[in-house]
Design a protein around this nucleic acid. Sequence first.
DNA 1: CGGCATGTTTCGCC
DNA 2: AGGCGAAACATGCC
Length: 261
Amino acid sequence: MPEGLEAEIWRRAAQPIVGRSIRHVWCDERVAPDGLVDTLNDARILAVDRTGKVVQIVTDAGVLGLHLGMTGRIEIDGTAPIERLEYASGADRPEWDRLRLTTLPAATVDGSGAPAVRMNDPRRLGRLSLDEHLELGPDLLTLSAAELGGALGRRTVAIKSLLLDQAAVAGLGNLCADEVLFWAGVAPGRSADELGEKEIVAIARACRTRLSKMLEAGGSTHGALSPQVRAGPAVCPRDGAPLQRSTIGARTAVWCPAHQR
DNA sequence: CGGCATGTTTCGCC
DNA sequence: AGGCGAAACATGCC
């Protein structure tokens, strides 16, 4: 599930660890930069932030970045804010753990000794970073028409590909990009530079309004184009026309040719 | 077995 | 130089 919405859910859920000290760090060295463990041991957690899809644990010794990839999940104090991933195994095997971080004080909720932060990622496309400089576009939840217009420029890529470009707009993934275009009434394959002002306004507005609703509903899978709708032959939830599946930018786009033009 | 999956990075070609 | 598209990465599931 990890798109910007999931990262935001995890960021919120992680706030209880702010103010604690890191007692022990373990990580899968294949997905972490050298020196990460030594740097973070005994550091104090100052904040948990989000930049695009990246959850950032800010400490007085450095910023730990959690990139979830396609199948990464986070547990806080032994509790998973998002229980299961739509396009990943329902299993949760210890050998898929990529980060275990314990704190003082430890979790107070259940006294189970569970890590304060645990990242589990079956597919191992996710990774950890330390003091990484991120060059990302404006955030998906607050995107303005002016910001989107600036990102479009003279780009000739499909608008959907541009929305997935993290340097253009930060935090959108495949599901949210389809969802936003669905509500904005714009076909995903349209060249970015040929969009009119009204369409730019509609896309930016759809980001702010629809994505906020999806966030409160539970994340990227809670839109009109849910995984259930995407999976099979389905009709448009808005007008009943047959939905179309296309490959755009090497990803599957689901859209309604009747109202997305 | 083939194909597909919420993501990013890299490579070759304009 | 920089935009663009395809391929690669790693793994599980249907």
